[in-house]
């Protein structure tokens, strides 16, 4: 398991692995927002939590097809499926590797971008917390979507169409935590619900993803 994690991390971070692309995309989206809605700081600070969440979500979406695509092409996914490690476990590890290389850096970058959008000071803590929790759910749900579309030639667009509706609950609760945090309101309820979604996804989605992978490897 550790070896698989190491290998996935190495693949993602090496040149051409697309490691920095998601972060750059996040930056560009956040820069484009003031250009499109105007430089009014009051407006920007109101929409900042939502924009940061949406930007992180879209950036996360970009790298989803890489979770399984490379391994599918070179056949190592077949090896994984027959390995002693259950496929569910392998999926979970690969989703975790995706989170480490995408969700975690995005989370750490979000406060920096928050400055650009005049995010109110009490918001930073909750933005970090909600993204830290929520991006893990995004990675696992995304792994399911990637497993569904792994054998398809033009799967990228379809993957987005399949995964985005599944992201709705996570986005709602996550952005709600960040918004309430920024407005100084109590965040306990949405935070608990977000944590519930993340834990539930982490526990159950690997099974769905592994089932889809088995069908695709048949």
């Amino acid at each position: 398991m550790i070896a698989l994690l190491r290998r996935d991390m190495a693949v993602a971070t090496r040149a051409g692995g697309g490691f920095g692309l998601g972060l750059a995309f996040f930056l560009v989206v956040v820069v484009l927002v003031p250009l499109s809605v105007g430089p009014d700081t009051a407006v920007l600070s109101r929409i900042a939590p939502g924009i940061l969440w949406l930007g992180a979500l879209l950036a996360c979406l970009l790298s989803l097809d890489r979770i399984f695509a490379l391994d599918f092409e070179d056949g190592s996914l077949d090896l994984l499926a027959t390995a002693p490690l259950p496929l569910e476990g392998a999926v979970a590890v690969k989703a975790f590797a995706h989170w480490l290389t995408t969700g975690l850096p995005l989370t750490l970058m979000a406060p920096v971008l928050g400055v650009l959008l005049n995010l109110p000071v009490p918001g930073y803590r909750w933005l970090l917390a909600s993204l830290l929790l929520g991006t893990s759910a995004l990675s696992v749900i995304g792994a399911f979507g990637a497993a569904l579309t792994v054998g398809l030639r033009r799967g990228g667009l379809l993957l987005s169409l399949l995964v985005l509706p599944l992201y709705v609950p996570t986005l709602i609760f996550g952005a709600e935590v960040a918004r309430r945090g920024a407005e100084g309101m109590p965040v306990a309820t949405p935070l608990a619900l977000l944590a519930g979604i993340s834990l539930g996804c982490a526990a159950l989605m690997p099974f769905a993803a592994a089932a889809a992978l088995r069908v695709n490897l048949r």
Binding site: P165, V168, P169, I172, F173, E176, T189, P190, L193, I197
Partner: peptide
């Protein structure tokens, strides 16, 4: 997830 979204949206 549709069910979850239903409750998330209500919230």
């Amino acid at each position: 997830f549709a069910l979850l979204s239903r409750y998330a949206v209500l919230f």
